[in-house]
Nucleic acid binder design. Structure first.
Lengths: 211, 211
DNA sequence: TAGATTGTTAATCGATTAACAATC
DNA sequence: TAGATTGTTAATCGATTAACAATC
């Protein structure tokens, strides 16, 4: 059971979980086996209070007078984020971004596996990207029906994104990781969407550069 | 003058600005010339109140009884985000992610220009990526001293990220767009850092997939 | 003018911080 | 035991929503 009660956890908390995970991994790599909320918070720019509040949404992982076991806490957060389970991804769009995502090295240790990559361009189909061969999108239906796919990664132009998201969702893919610069909202469907807007991120940087 | 007074704008507001910009661009592309806070909010999943509050941090761009001029509001937001100015970027790391960013098509219309890409690997140096030729990192100092560089894009392994951020900052580069999976914090230096953590984003998706 | 919609103030809601008893 | 640090409740702060007078 991930949460203590059936309370819904705020997005602000969820956003911090992967950061906790990274920082705890870092501590672990440095052979540090225990950490207090104060120390962890200081590293991450959070108050001790906030760290304890965040963690206590999911259960009491610490021990009074001692703090938290780094490896235990890291495992708990991995479990909360569900990266203790294997997830299978397909990438739609074998352009340079799709290709880069398909080869991204940091997925494996989080149990994330890219199992196929698709494109519609005949000049790209058949090419090798890492260990994968680019398949024609026309084979997508067939592929998904015969392989378990948890997440579809959209690295295609924005005008095709909505349609492809709908298709994936209809095929039973439950998660969409969207790199097309349009906000996908899937009210109709059951799929969960996570939008990554690279230019939005860069525009926040240009804002802060001058303010 | 971007803000009305010298109030500091909350991060939550800044995060929405690029979304406003995208949605207004969309409306403009569909030849819609005016929009009310209610309509814009509905499209974006915000209340009319919030739209008006957000915009009024920067000035009164609307007109009672009419709403907002789409093109005018879009221009104002572009100005607030400073994408009416040209920004010059250099990419550090010509791996597949660095390469993809160097070729990313959505930058140009926001006045963002990639002017060089660097790598340390001799087998990559000299290769062509889009219109650019990969330069050796040893030439970085010299390049930055002779060309105006606003933003450094880090697409390198995390253990090299901190050092490279420091170097860029010392060379006078004021913005760091960091794709290395470590949180760069530049208290010592004057550089502004925007972190993009792809695996964090994916972990939020796996969380929501199961909760 | 009447209707619509803004800009802005006030009320509410939620997230962060502070405080402290519990306890290892 | 004494010291440290948690889990949790209460207080504060800030962001979102509601309300409405101003006005195009």
């Amino acid at each position: 059971m991930a949460t203590k009660r059936n309370e819904s956890i705020s997005d602000a908390v969820i956003r911090r979980l992967p950061r906790y995970y990274r920082h705890l991994s870092e501590l672990l790599a440095n052979n540090i086996s225990r950490v207090s909320s104060g120390e962890l918070g200081k590293e991450m720019g959070l108050t001790a209070s906030q760290v304890r509040q965040d963690l206590n949404h999911f259960g009491g992982f610490g021990q009074q007078g001692y703090g938290y076991s780094v490896s235990n806490l890291r495992d708990e957060i991995a479990r909360i984020l569900c990266i203790d389970m294997k997830h299978r991804l397909v990438v739609i769009g074998a352009g340079s971004l799709g290709g880069a995502l398909a080869k991204y090295p940091n997925f494996a240790k989080r149990n994330l596996e890219i199992i196929a990559i698709f494109d519609q361009d005949p000049s790209v189909i058949g090419k090798k990207i890492g260990d994968l061969i680019v398949l024609p999108v026309t084979k997508l239906d067939d592929f998904v029906k015969h392989h378990p796919v948890d997440i579809g990664v959209l690295a295609i132009p924005k005008d095709q994104a909505k349609l492809m998201a709908k298709k994936l969702s209809e095929l039973g893919v439950k998660g969409i990781w969207n790199f097309s610069s349009t906000d996908l909202e899937m009210e109709e469907t059951a799929a969960v969407v996570e939008n990554v807007h690279l230019t939005d991120s860069l525009m926040r940087l240009t804002y802060r550069l001058h303010n």
